[in-house]
Design a protein around this nucleic acid. Structure first.
Lengths: 117, 117
DNA sequence: TCCATATTTCGATAATCCTTGAAGTGTTGA
DNA sequence: TCAACACTTCAAGGATTATCGAAATATGGA
């Protein structure tokens, strides 16, 4: 992830509806969610959710595929973890001790003793 | 870090000058940098850098203190790591396997075997 | 084929954000 | 106290972003 992509991603996440939608998509997993379902869950109009989904897509944080009449959106996990790594590079550069709380938080996901190398 | 703070932080980081300035501050460490130095490094006008520094401050990502004629800005590491944790919660919620690349990246900072508890 | 469904695109408007230069505030040293 | 310095604030303008409703596109079923 370069600066350009990071800027786009931060921009995408800086809007309330979009942040909520992305979180929905993350929870929904690889199955994704139809645009209509997202609109309903987020309580916004069809055209508005479409606008925001496009923004998330443009930023690389979501992707779309058609399924019959619906268009299914899903989170781009690689982009999300790339963004986290981008932030961590900032955070850690020159100051390794800063990141330990983050690493602690990460340990909720993957037991630290299982990380090899 | 709640949604409100995260939105503000993402907004702050979604602008090129601000992202660069924050990275400078992170590298500069707790000593921080004077506004004038930042302006020069970032190649923007005094009033413009002041505007962006205020935004970073408002988002909780930087703080200011006066030192003689200068105003010294420094990165708020807690906010930064809070933001990373916020993103990780999103990323991991329901999908623990996603975070492993992030944890790998984190291991560059703190040797995983040193994390106790 | 025709209609209903699901979503996107468009055009207009409102809102927010960024930039600039000029004026203002606080600090130091002569 | 006055001038220079370091920075901030202000007001105005331009640029980008968000929202809305209406019209357009694509799909599936009767």
């Amino acid at each position: 992830m370069d600066e350009r992509q990071a800027l786009a991603a931060f921009g995408a996440l800086s809007q309330e509806t979009r942040l909520r939608v992305l979180r929905m998509l993350v929870v929904a997993g690889t199955d994704g969610l139809a645009a209509g379902v997202i609109a309903e869950k987020a309580d916004v109009s069809a055209s508005n959710v479409s606008f925001h989904l496009k923004e998330l897509e443009r930023a690389g944080l979501a992707s779309a595929r058609r399924d019959a009449r619906s268009i299914i959106y899903s989170a781009e996990y690689d982009a999300l973890s790339g963004l986290i790594r981008f932030l961590m590079e900032d955070c850690c550069s020159g100051r390794p001790e800063i990141c330990s709380p983050v690493v602690d938080a990460a340990s909720c996901c993957v037991p630290t003793r299982d990380i090899v190398q």
